Each structure stands twice: as C-alpha cells, then as structure tokens.
Amino acid sequence: MTAVLTPATDADLEVMREQLGRPMRGVVGIAARCVCGNPTVVATEPRLPDGSPFPTFYYLTHPAATAAMSALEATHVMRELSELLEADDDIAGAYRAAHDAYLADRAAYGEVDEIAGISAGGMPTRVKCLHALAGHALAAGPGVNPIGDLALARSTWSPERCACANPRVAA
C-alpha cells in the first residue's frame, strides 16, 4: 500500500523544525500524523535541494516515537528481529515486499542513481534502524512492514495516544 501524503503546511514545517531542532529540507508531504494532528512521519525528496542523495523517504520526526525507537534499539532487539527474518520465510517475504513498496513510493518523486535499490532500515535482508522501519510502518499502515509493525508493538509509544509537547487539538 502506498502512503497517502498530505501537504506540509507552514505550521507543519514549524512543528517539525521544533521536533528535529533544524529546518526541514526537501519535504514532499506528511506521511503520518499524531492523533492531535502534528506530523509524526515526513516524506522527503530522494535528492535534497543541495543535491545530496537522501534514501530515507519516510523520516520519523515525532520526539516521543523517536525516543521509544531509541530505547527499543538499546535493548538489542534488532538482533532478535534479524534472527526472525532468517527463521521465518513469511516474514522475510513480507519484509522484501516492504522494501519494494518503499522503493516504489520514493521513485514517484524521482530516481537517484546513487541510492538505486537502497531503501531504509536494513531492508530487505537485515534490521538496522528501527526509526526508519517504524516510520515506514506508520506511513504505509499496518501489515506492510512486518518489522516496523513489531517495533511499534514492542515500543512504549503508541500512535493512538498523543505525546506531543504542544498538541494541536485536545487528544
């Protein structure tokens, strides 16, 4: 499933600047939002305005989600998830399909030779970055990225509960 992007407003860009501590670059849209409306995942051009290739099309911006993925990575769960990929053909196949879907989503915004075939998070054969995998899972929806789904399920953060410092609406 291809993520449905919503246009990034000036308010979204300001929220993401606050979330990440820097101005946003190459934004093509918001791929997932907090229940309060704040951005959670941004979609970024495969080539940034300065000419740099940028393979991470879906980028997790939400501070609580990012912190939860960092905490999960600190438990060394990536080794366990990588072993799961080796042991379970169904999950490995779904993970490869997630890689292909990620590449197709990004390709809609241009092909960049330097990153051809490279998605994010270690896809399609290993688990490298839960932030990227959770970002893809949030953008694409449940059932698309099995490792991203597992990371979200095991984390202390939930996309169904607002944990924003400045929520847009009552959560």
Rank of each mutant, 00 (worst) to 15 (best):
I91V: 15
C34T: 14
M24S: 15
G121I: 09
I91M: 08
T61M: 04
A31E: 05
A68H: 07
C34Y: 06
A107N: 07
A8D: 04
L150C: 03
V77S: 12
L103Y: 00
V35I: 14
G93K: 12
E45F: 00
P39D: 04
G29W: 04
R47K: 12
G37T: 08
P63V: 00
T66L: 13
E73S: 12
L20S: 04
P142R: 15
T6K: 13
S119I: 06
L133F: 03
S158G: 05
D90G: 12
Y109V: 02
L138V: 09
I30V: 15
A43G: 09
P55T: 01
P49S: 12
P167D: 12
A11N: 04
A71C: 05
K128N: 06
R79W: 00
M16P: 02
T75G: 14
A120I: 02
L81N: 07
V27S: 14
S155C: 02
G29V: 00
G121A: 09
A65N: 11
M24F: 05
L13V: 02
L103T: 04
A3Y: 10
T40F: 00
L60N: 05
S158Y: 04
M24W: 08
A92D: 08
A163W: 01
E86F: 02
R22Q: 10
A171D: 15
L138E: 15
L48S: 13
E14T: 11
I115S: 10
G121P: 08
T156Q: 08
H136N: 11
C129R: 02
H131G: 09
L20M: 14
D113R: 06
D88E: 07
V144K: 06
M123Q: 11
D149H: 07
A107P: 01
A65E: 07
C129Y: 00
S82G: 15
L150N: 03
P49D: 13
A3F: 07
H62I: 00
I147N: 11
R154S: 12
A108Y: 01
V35Q: 01
L72Q: 05
T66M: 10
T2H: 14
D88H: 02
A108K: 13
T44M: 14
A71M: 09
A165Q: 03
A104D: 12
R25H: 10
V15A: 15
M24P: 10
G110P: 07
A120F: 00
R106F: 01
P7M: 03
A11D: 15
